[in-house]
């Protein structure tokens, strides 16, 4: 089986407060530590597990991003992915959900995938819209919020997370599957993985390789636009109050103000 996993390199969500550049209105990616999206680590683990259980399958990681995104793909290779594809092109900068999905779908289409894994949402953009849009562009069914996946013959069956439990959902293959974060234990690379990652097949594609026009993607093709960037309502920096008998009320006010009741 030809299995794919879409991954993304993002500013380390654990140490970097994600910021938008007021001039370009894009995510600040310079001068910050960039990592493979932690959610994608989970998704890769799910894909590797499935590949190994199926046997005779190849797992390819695919990413769209600047040259630095190579590092994220190397990490994926070190974790046990077999092959990597990086789609990198200056014209892709500023892509929105549709531009991103269109680009990834174009690259995936060339590969005739049987199964495409995505994370439910990226940890920095968290729109969660790219996988569905990829599925639509490829005309494939989508199995979302999976916390378990099995493949039986030409069908995939998942346990789909819901508010109160889960649904068992099946669909024919090929299909797009999104993995709910935290459903699988991320794989810490072995030395063999780290060393072999340097030798595994790694291809780089540009927009023209995919037969896409620069007007369809990037800022030029964006169907959404940021008008302005403002400061969030200043998160009252650690208000410390001595209890004078009204602590319960103060806390309840706080809860109500933040819609937590």
């Amino acid at each position: 089986m030809k299995i794919f996993v879409c991954v993304k390199q993002i500013p380390d969500p654990n140490t970097v407060e994600s910021k938008l550049d007021p001039a370009t209105k894009r995510l600040v990616r310079t001068g910050v530590s960039l990592v493979l999206d932690p959610g994608d680590e989970t998704t890769i683990a799910a894909a590797i597990k499935l590949r190994d259980s199926l046997g005779n399958s190849e797992l390819t990681a695919i990413s769209m991003g600047p040259a630095s995104a190579q590092e994220a793909l190397r990490r994926a290779l070190a974790m046990g992915v077999d092959r990597a594809i990086l789609i990198s092109d200056p014209a892709l900068a500023g892509s929105d959900v549709l531009g991103t999905a269109r680009t990834l779908a174009a690259a995936l289409k060339r590969e005739n995938p049987d199964l495409i894994f995505c994370s439910t949402e990226s940890t920095d953009g968290y729109t969660g819209m790219v996988p569905g849009a990829i599925a639509e562009f490829l005309g494939l069914p989508q199995l979302t919020f999976a916390r378990e996946i099995t493949v039986e013959g030409s069908k995939a069956v998942i346990k789909r997370v819901t508010q109160t439990g889960y649904e068992v959902v099946e669909s024919p293959l090929p299909a797009v599957v999104t993995i709910a974060s935290g459903s699988f234990e991320a794989i810490y690379p072995t030395m063999k993985g780290i060393m072999s990652a340097r030798k595994k097949p790694f291809s780089q594609l540009s927009l023209s390789d995919l037969g896409l026009e620069s007007s369809q993607v990037g800022e030029a093709g964006a169907r959404e636009q940021i008008l302005s960037i403002g400061k969030a309502e200043a998160r009252a920096a650690g208000q410390i109050i001595k209890d004078e008998g009204n602590a319960a009320e103060i806390i309840a006010d706080f809860l109500q103000r933040h819609q937590l009741l």
Binding site: D12, N14, T15, S33, Y188, T190, M191, K192
Partner: peptide
């Protein structure tokens, strides 16, 4: 060789390496 260790150690390794 096996990447087989108590799971709570993963974040320790990642944090030391990244941060």
């Amino acid at each position: 060789e096996e990447s087989d260790f108590p799971p709570e150690v993963t974040s320790l390794f990642n944090n030391i390496e990244r941060n």
